[in-house]
Design a protein around this nucleic acid. Structure first.
Length: 566
RNA sequence: GCGCCUGUAGCUCAGUGGAUAGAGUGACGGAUUCCGAUUCCGGAGGCCGCAGGUUCAAAUCCUGCCAGGCGCGCCA
């Protein structure tokens, strides 16, 4: 139920009719109705809705926009709808002022939809896959993964709420060079732990977790591997540690509120023959060729790009070849749209990937890559120094232990992925007004408290909130709060279309602010029952809306804020 | 050198071509006999990096420049 959308349609239709009438009377000249927008003005004095039709029409009509506006206004028939009056303002905007009746329908809609309030159906059940985190399984999750996890999962939740059929996927890089190096590093730690002195591989993984894995293996199976060939030791240790690491990653992400639909193994692309099949197809289609014992993907003839290696001269496919096979498989699985969340350091890969997708006949616009910039970790004014090479970096597990997962997710989602962001650990764990998470949660807690109070005072809660008379809510702060509530479905639709979950954090803070303002001006638990009941219900509706938005960030998966007050 | 991202209040950041550019925070000044003051209100604080262009209208679109970040492997 998108009441704002309905009203916009109502206004747009009246405007189109006015334009037709004006044309018929010879007052205005234009070929067809131009694109125009109806928006909610920032400035309250500019009405509830504003249309720019006169401005976009001015040129073709060969008249000043203000004059066009006057003509349209004279022909506008608004009788019978929600519009109370229309004014022309500024350069020629038509400002629509509505009777507040439409706002009084909002609480009823919220109560009838409950936790579905705000959901829209713009997705039409389109199948969308969101692939995110896909961290290298040889290590622990870092801040980049934390940001990607928060953004990816919130985006997936948002798209589902907007009517898409969403699948969450983790691509497990359990094959290729880094797994061999992983095995060598493990082997070194294994032998070290058993008393040998070994030279650590030059580019090996230095993290303490590697030694942990080696010790874990020893605890389970002892030193029998020492008798085996190096290759066997490395492979066995890598397999063992990988299994352990992946289940730890899965658990960490689950604690972070993320549950995947699919864990897709890169190694399976080798064993299923999908990489070979893909490379063969490209060779056969003439998009790839062999040179110096390697297989190369041709760059487009009209570009400056270089050809890329798909299969090395040693016969092993590159990551790029595996990724092409993987993306081909995604589309073969029937996804209408594929969204990847990648770190900005992979941006050079985006154009190549989209081109590869198009070689298989898929529209490259069906693949969207959201790149996220770096996270700078701060502790107050001090930067937290981290070195991935030395294995000293803050892990997602440590982050959650320090600031809690709800604050962590909210902070990451709050920022546009395009921007480098600062993450201040001190701020995130502070339970003060400085912290936006607590500002929103406080609004919800305050509502719960008001509802408890109503029961304690013997008032009780409205038995049938949908049947109440809301027309007694006439205070400015009450109307503003209702209008803010009405906005949620629009915010969801716009955020989903733009793939920008961070917009909802802006919205929910505004909603919380509108509630706090209402609270300071209007006493809810007043003795006047005719006023008290709709105010209690309004508060309940706000709590519902807050929960619905926060649920998109899933900060409340286990211990949630819902149902604490009905 | 080429490519991608960013540049908005002291700081952290919103801002889907629209009217007087916003929020939080910091500093300053106020508000509570009463539902959680973790709240609310107020003024102060801006060449929207710079310069052109497109448009009735530009923080937003285009071009160039400056600054910061990240890429440009038979790594992933």
């Amino acid at each position: 139920m998108r009441i704002i959308e309905e009203i916009k349609q109502q206004i747009a239709q009246a405007l189109r009719a006015a334009l037709e009438t004006a044309k018929a009377k010879g007052l205005l000249q234009c070929q067809r109705v131009p694109e125009f927008i109806i928006e909610i003005p920032r400035e309250k004095s500019h009405g509830d809705f504003a249309a720019n039709l006169a401005l976009v029409l001015a040129k073709e009509a060969k008249m000043p926009p203000r004059k066009v506006g006057e003509i349209l206004l004279a022909q506008l028939d608004i009788a019978g709808g929600d519009v109370d009056r229309v004014e022309i303002a500024g350069p020629g905007f038509l400002n629509f002022y509505l009777r507040p009746d439409w706002l009084y329908r909002i609480p009823k809609i919220i109560f009838s939809l409950g936790d579905r309030y705000g959901s829209v159906s713009i997705g039409n059940g389109l199948k969308v896959q969101v692939e995110f985190v896909s961290a290298n399984p040889t290590g622990l999750l870092h801040m980049g993964n934390a940001r990607g996890g928060a953004i990816g999962d919130s985006l997936a939740n948002l798209l589902a709420f907007a009517g898409y059929d969403v699948s969450r996927e983790f691509y497990v890089n359990d094959a290729g060079n880094q797994i061999q190096l992983f095995g060598k590093s493990l082997d070194a730690r294994y032998r070290e732990a058993l008393g040998e002195t070994v030279a650590f591989p030059a580019d090996g993984y230095h993290g303490a977790d590697i030694a942990d894995s080696a010790r874990l293996y020893i605890a389970a199976y002892g030193d029998a591997l020492l008798a085996e060939e190096a290759e066997v030791r490395e492979r066995t240790l890598a397999e063992f540690a990988l299994k352990d690491k992946i289940s730890r990653i899965e658990k960490t992400l689950k604690d972070y509120g993320i549950v995947y639909d699919v864990w897709f193994s890169e190694a399976s692309l080798y064993t299923d023959g999908k990489i070979k099949e893909t490379v063969d197809w490209l060779l056969k289609a003439g998009h790839a060729y062999e040179r110096e014992g390697a297989v190369w993907l041709k760059a487009p003839a009209d570009s400056e790009e270089k050809d890329e290696v798909l299969v090395r001269s040693n016969g092993l496919p590159t990551y790029f070849a595996a990724d092409i096979a993987y993306h081909r498989d995604k589309f073969q699985r029937g996804f209408d749209r594929v969204i990847n969340i990648w770190g900005a350091d992979h941006h050079g890969h985006v154009a190549r990937m989209k081109r590869a997708v198009s070689l298989f006949g898929y529209d490259p616009d069906r693949l969207t890559v959201i790149l996220m910039q770096l996270v700078h970790l701060m502790r107050g004014d001090e930067a937290v120094r981290m070195s991935k090479r030395a294995g000293t970096y803050l892990t997602l597990e440590e982050l959650m232990a320090e600031v809690g997962y709800d604050a962590a997710r909210y902070f990451f989602v709050m920022r546009n992925p395009d921007s480098q962001m600062e993450f201040d650990l001190e701020l995130a764990k502070s339970k003060t007004a400085e912290n936006p998470v607590f500002y929103v949660q406080y609004a919800h807690a305050r509502i719960c408290s008001i509802l408890r109070q109503a029961k304690a005072l013997g008032y009780g809660l409205p038995a049938d909130p949908a049947a109440l008379d809301y027309t007694v809510l006439r205070e400015e702060t009450e109307l503003a709060l209702l209008a803010k509530l009405a906005d949620l479905p629009e915010e969801v639709a716009n955020a989903a279309l733009a793939l920008e979950p961070h917009r909802l954090t802006v919205y929910v803070q505004e909603l919380a602010a509108a509630f706090h303002l209402f609270y300071t001006h209007c006493r809810v638990n007043t003795e006047d029952a005719a006023l008290r009941a709709p105010r209690l219900a309004l508060s309940q509706a706000v709590a519902q809306a807050i929960r619905n938005v926060l649920a998109l960030g899933r900060p409340c998966a286990g211990r949630n804020v819902s149902n604490q007050c009905v």
